[in-house]
Design a protein around this nucleic acid. Structure first.
Length: 411
RNA sequence: GCGCCUGUCGUCAAGCGGUUAAGACCUCGGAUUGUGGUUCCGAUAUGCAUGGGUUCGAAUCCCAUCAGGCGCCCCA
C-alpha cells in the first residue's frame, strides 16, 4: 500500500462531529460583537516578516523563535503568529484613521506558532479577537473587557477569573524598571538564566517567572515593597482607577494582579487575562490590553487602541459536547427517481433530506433512516400511485400516510 | 530547546518471551422480497509505528528512528 501522509505535528483536523461547537463559537462572536458595533475584518494569513518584528516586538519569544518564516521572490514572509499587527496594518493601509472613532473591528482565524505542542497549545491554532482604535479613555478598556466577559457568558462560560493590571505608560514604566533593577541587583546571581536575560532586556517580565527560586526572591519584603508601590504616574493611575470603577459598576468581577505583565511588547497601561481552572497548564482563554503606540510604530498616526484575543481551541475544550444534528427526513424508496424528486422538493423548502443512493433493500433503508433522521418518508409503489407519502416518526413509531403538502407541516 | 510517558484493526483496547493476536464499538452482509432502532448469525489485523539486534522462539526484551501525549519555557 502507498504510504499515507499524516497531518503536520501540532496541527489537526476539525472533524464533522466537532464542527458544531466551532459554529457556536463563531456565531456567538458575530452576534455579541455586533451588539457593540464591531465589524468583522479578514486579513491575510501571511504578511511581511517585518510587520511582526516591528509590531509584536523583536525581543519576544514569538518573534525570536516561534515564527513560520519563508522566502518568496526575495521577500521574507511570515505566517501570522497573532493578528493584532495585521489588523493594525490594515487599519493604517486602508485609511481607517479617517473614519470617525472609535473604529471597532473583530476577527477570527488560524494563527501559527512553532512551539512544542501540548494540551491547549498547537502550532496551528485559532483565535477570535477584537481591536478598538481611537479612544484613549478607560471606557474603551472597560467596554472591551465587558464584551469579552459577555461573549464567554453567551457560551455558557461563567466561572472564569478576570485579572487586570496596569503597566503604566512608557514614561513611568521606565521609572519602575529602574527601581526594580536596583532592588534586584543584590539577587542577580540567584536568578535563573532566563531572568538574567530579562533583567537586561525586559525587566517587567521578571515578575512573570515561574521558577520557584525566582518566585521566592520576589516574595522578599524589600522587593514586594517596590512591586506593591504604584510607580505609575498620576494620569496612568487615574486611568486604571476609572477602569476599575466602570468594571465595578458593571458587575464585572476581577482581581488586580500586579504580576500580570504579558509577553508582547506593545502593551501599555491596561493589560488583562481571563483564565479557567479546567484547562491544564495552558489556562488563559483570553489575553489583551491597551497598545497606544503600536499604530504609530507601524507608520500610522498616533492612535490609541485596545484589544484582546481568545484561543478558540481552548474555548472549544470548555464547551460541552453537542449532540449531532439529525436530518429532518430520510426517504425510504425503491424508486430512485421518485426519491430524488421528493428530496429536491423538500430541500428547496429548507428541509434536510437524504435517501439511499445505492438502492438497498427496504429494511436496510429503514434501519439507516432510524439512525440519521427524525422521520422516515416512505415512498413505495402504493404511495407513488396515490401521490402521497407515508411518514413515520422514528422516535415514537407512529406512522400515517399524508399528501405532500401535509408532509411539510409535520417535518 | 529540555524532561517524562506512550505507539496492537476505522475507534477503544486484552496480551507482560512460546506455537491460529481476546473482546467491545463502528462498518458491511444475512436471519427479514414494504416496516427500523432490540435480538441472533457471519465478515473484517498473515500482523502489533518503522528499521536493526538478543533468542530455538519477539507484539512482548534491547537500541535507533519516526509519530503522539503531558510538563517546563512561552502564550490564546
Amino acid at each position: 500500500m502507498t504510504k499515507i501522509i499524516n497531518v503536520i505535528k501540532g496541527t489537526h483536523d476539525i472533524l464533522p462531529q466537532e464542527v458544531d461547537k466551532w459554529h457556536i463559537l463563531e456565531e456567538n462572536a458575530l452576534k455579541i460583537f455586533s451588539r457593540y458595533g464591531y465589524k468583522e475584518i479578514r486579513t491575510p494569513i501571511f504578511e511581511a516578516t517585518e510587520l511582526f518584528a516591528r509590531g509584536v516586538g523583536d525581543t519576544t519569544d514569538i518573534v525570536n523563535k516561534e515564527m513560520y518564516t519563508f522566502e518568496k521572490s526575495e521577500r521574507s514572509l511570515t505566517l501570522r503568529p497573532e493578528n493584532t499587527a495585521g489588523v493594525v496594518r490594515a487599519y493604517i493601509e486602508n485609511g481607517m484613521a479617517r473614519l470617525s472613532p472609535p473604529v471597532k473591528l473583530w476577527y477570527k482565524g488560524p494563527m501559527f506558532r512553532y512551539e512544542r505542542p501540548q494540551k491547549g497549545r498547537q502550532r496551528q491554532f485559532h483565535q477570535v479577537g477584537v481591536e478598538m482604535f481611537g479612544i484613549k479613555e478607560p471606557t474603551a478598556d472597560a467596554e472591551v473587557i465587558l464584551m469579552a466577559v459577555n461573549y464567554l457568558k453567551s457560551l455558557g462560560l461563567n466561572d472564569l477569573d478576570v485579572e487586570i493590571n496596569s503597566l503604566g505608560c512608557p514614561k513611568c514604566r521606565e521609572e519602575f524598571k529602574k527601581r526594580l533593577k536596583e532592588v534586584l541587583k543584590p539577587e542577580f546571581d540567584n536568578l535563573c538564566d532566563d531572568c538574567k536575560t530579562r533583567y537586561e532586556k525586559n525587566p517587567l517580565r521578571l515578575l512573570d517567572c515561574k521558577v520557584e527560586s525566582c518566585k521566592a526572591i520576589f516574595e522578599k519584603p524589600e522587593i514586594q515593597k517596590v512591586i506593591q508601590v504604584d510607580y505609575i504616574c498620576e494620569e496612568c493611575a487615574e486611568h486604571f482607577a476609572k477602569l476599575k470603577t466602570y468594571l465595578d459598576k458593571l458587575n464585572v468581577k476581577y482581581n488586580v494582579n500586579k504580576l500580570l505583565v504579558r509577553g508582547l511588547d506593545y502593551y501599555n497601561r491596561t493589560v488583562f487575562e481571563i483564565k479557567s481552572n479546567n484547562l491544564g497548564s495552558q489556562n488563559a482563554v483570553c489575553g489583551g490590553g491597551r497598545y497606544d503606540s503600536l499604530v504609530k510604530n507601524l507608520g500610522g498616526d498616533d492612535t490609541p487602541a485596545v484589544g484582546w484575543a481568545m484561543g478558540m481551541e481552548r474555548l472549544n475544550s470548555l464547551l460541552p459536547d453537542s449532540e449531532p444534528q439529525k436530518l429532518n427526513g430520510y426517504i425510504v424508496s425503491t424508486s430512485p427517481v421518485d426519491a430524488f424528486e421528493l428530496a429536491e422538493e423538500l430541500r428547496n423548502d429548507g428541509f434536510n433530506i437524504e435517501f439511499d443512493l445505492s438502492n438497498k433493500k427496504f429494511t436496510k433503508q429503514l434501519e439507516k433512516a432510524s439512525k440519521v433522521a427524525d422521520y422516515a418518508l416512505i415512498l413505495g409503489e402504493d404511495e407513488i400511485k396515490a401521490g402521497k407519502v407515508s411518514v413515520k416518526n422514528l422516535a415514537t413509531g407512529e406512522q400515517k400516510t399524508v399528501s405532500r403538502q401535509e408532509l411539510r407541516s409535520i417535518l
